[in-house]
């Protein structure tokens, strides 16, 4: 695995000057993943913050070949690109020794929800690509609407904390498990605060032949109602509370890659974010308890599987 010094020396493939928000988790995730590749990368991005924020014509932040086609089809688009690579290589139109890595980026809306069919199809067909979901827990680009990734109790513009209904009523979809159920060679959860872990996972995912998947938590000051300067800290607390466990499944074996010495209470994470403000009121403790219980159960489940073939 590359050291921080080595990573820093690599070409910057994702230029500054883009229009993503201050404190957005996406740029450090994308930069680090692109730096972790040991071959040229061709990428696609689902409609969303990353696409809108990086390519307002005539500018582009991408110093690699990149395409945006639509919202729900990043996985299908990368399937086509990767297949063209195979076809053209076979026909000698691309040199035999020319290696290219294929990466699709999508937010949680474009991955958990509208893009899940295309993702599932591409995983099943076994294309050689890495899918990266930057999960900020709502449709942030369109203005913070609830998605399948939105945590229980979070207020969004379509699941507001009202007088009667207090934020999102459902627990989030566990997309990483859904991906793992496709028996892909590699899938992992990561966080931008733990750059070494993220980079190692990206490097591994890009090395493995076949479909690989990274689900990366991506703090969003706009939608989380959190402080821009605390984004990386917010990602860390999400991991330390075990809301966002860092683990990987490689060839069927699950491994937790970081175990907090002291698992923190979910309240520590919630209080950093205005979207959970209502959950901290004593009268709404039941929702908070439900969330804590869900997180505890999930963490226990992971601990019970750690090191095992799943």
């Amino acid at each position: 695995m590359a050291t921080l010094k080595e990573l820093a020396k690599k070409d910057e493939l994702f230029s500054g000057g883009h229009r993503l928000c201050t404190g957005c988790g996406i740029p450090p995730i994308v930069r680090l993943i692109l730096r972790s590749a040991n071959a040229p990368v061709v990428a696609t991005t689902a409609t969303g913050c990353l696409e809108v924020g990086t390519t307002i014509y005539p500018y582009t932040a991408w110093r690699i070949p990149w395409i945006h086609s639509a919202f729900e089809n990043a996985a299908a688009t990368i399937s086509g690109i990767e297949t063209a690579y195979k076809a053209l290589k076979k026909r000698g139109k691309i040199p035999k020794d020319k290696e290219i890595k294929f990466v699709a980026f999508g937010g949680d809306g474009g991955t958990y929800d509208i893009g899940i069919q295309a993702l599932s199809g591409a995983l099943e067909r076994g294309h050689n690509f890495l899918y990266v979901c930057y999960d900020n827990g709502a449709y942030m680009n369109t203005g913070i609407q609830r998605s399948g990734a939105t945590p229980l109790g979070a207020a969004t513009t379509t699941s507001p904390a009202g007088d009667v209904i207090l934020g999102k009523q459902e627990t989030r979809k566990d997309l990483t498990r859904i991906v793992i159920a496709h028996n892909v060679p590699y899938a992992a959860q990561a966080s931008p605060h733990n750059w070494a872990d993220l980079s190692k996972k990206a490097e591994k995912a890009l090395k493995i032949v076949g479909p690989t998947f990274l689900n990366v938590i991506s703090p969003c000051p706009l939608g989380w109602y959190s402080k821009s300067e605390e984004s990386i800290e917010a990602a860390k607390v999400a991991v330390d509370t075990c809301y966002w466990p860092l683990y990987e499944v490689e060839n069927g074996v699950l491994k937790i890659t970081y175990k907090p010495k002291q698992k923190r209470s979910i309240e520590d994470w919630l209080k950093m974010q205005g979207r959970f403000k209502h959950l901290l009121k004593p009268e709404n403790k039941a929702i908070l308890d439900k969330l804590q219980k869900y997180i505890d159960a999930e963490w226990e489940r992971l601990l019970s599987l750690d090191g095992k073939v799943i």
Binding site: A76, S79, G80, A84, Q117, G121, A122
Partner: peptide
């Protein structure tokens, strides 16, 4: 592909490639 939407999306990716 697993749908026509994805079939055309893959065509787009392959053609742009």
């Amino acid at each position: 592909a697993e749908s026509e939407h994805s079939a055309m999306s893959a065509c787009i990716g392959a053609s742009a490639a």
